[in-house]
């Protein structure tokens, strides 16, 4: 007797279908890049058109002028001085904020009492406009690098804390129960269950905290900096030099994007390599 379980029709030979799909994917990729380039061309063209026909050069300088200005800033070495100053502020401030925020986050995530004790203050620092911290630290510490560093600590601290609290609360109970029922101690549970689970939360905290740190650092430098990107932005603003201002903003962008996309994301892929979607 014959069973009905064998396939009714032979499977189609794989090659033509696969080729077709690959070709379609290629066409789509080409279309995507064309549109993307069209977007850039359109915007740069619009920019050029505006500056040559609609408004004066000092209001919207043409793209080429900005590019030469950027090149001048890089060639004169100014860029390293000021990026270095800002980066130093961020690095010191964020390192302090990260350590404090992680400890506070662990405490708040583990204990309801401490959560109730601290959550209002964390929320308050989260909702206070960065300008306030920049101004208050500027007033207390005056000109120089201390004020911006303190402003960075205070603002990015709460971002780190909030993310770590979220993570600690989401630590899967079934894994901690498993570890305890096999007799693992608190230190081992912290190291092998909590920390690996929290890693993505630490990364989110770092990303948010870092982007906040950039903004608050430049803002504080605009007010009291004696060096740094924000300091340069203020100088250009006061001289009404759109050219210099835009050049610094674009450099700032390129640098921030590089740090976030390349440096941070590569680190993240390494730490999260156990995840199936990362391993792929």
């Amino acid at each position: 007797m014959q069973t009905n379980l064998r396939p009714r029709r032979p499977a189609a030979p794989p090659s033509p279908g696969g080729d077709e799909r690959a070709a379609r994917r290629r066409a789509e990729r080409r279309a995507r890049w064309l549109w993307r380039i069209a977007g850039y061309v359109f915007f740069v063209g619009l920019w050029q058109f505006t500056s040559s026909f609609l408004v004066a050069d000092f209001i919207v300088p043409p793209p080429a002028v900005i590019l030469t200005e950027m090149w001048d800033i890089i060639a004169s070495g100014q860029v390293w001085v000021h990026f270095g100053a800002t980066l130093r502020t961020i690095a010191i401030g964020f390192a302090i904020a990260f350590v404090l925020g992680s400890a506070t986050g662990l405490l708040m995530g583990r204990s309801r009492w401490w959560e109730a004790f601290l959550s209002d203050w964390v929320m308050a620092t989260l909702t206070t406009p960065g300008l306030i911290f920049a101004l208050v630290t500027a007033m207390i510490f005056g000109l120089g690098p201390t004020g911006p560093i303190v402003a960075v600590v205070v603002t990015s601290f709460s971002y780190v804390t909030v993310n770590v609290v979220e993570g600690v609360k989401a630590v899967p109970r079934d894994l901690t129960d498993m570890a305890r029922s096999f007799g693992r101690g608190p230190a081992q549970i912290l190291r092998h269950v909590y920390l690996p689970f929290l890693a993505p939360y630490f990364f989110t905290a770092t990303r948010y905290g870092f982007s906040i740190a950039w903004k608050i650092a430049t803002l504080a430098e605009v007010i009291v900096g004696t060096a740094g990107i924000g300091f340069m932005m203020r100088q250009q603003f006061q001289q009404f030099s759109m050219r210099g201002f835009l050049a610094w903003v674009l450099l700032f962008f390129a640098f921030a994007l590089f740090l976030e996309r390349v440096v941070l994301q590569r680190r993240m892929r390494h730490v999260l390599r156990w995840r199936p979607e990362v391993a792929r």
Binding site: F182, G183, Q188, H192, A199
Partner: peptide, 23 residues
Amino acid sequence: LGYVFQSARLLPWRSVIDNLLFV
């Protein structure tokens, strides 16, 4: 005691052999 749970409850960030070594 050895315990087998309803879901496997493996640590997803450790390899299979490391999961055994963990306990």
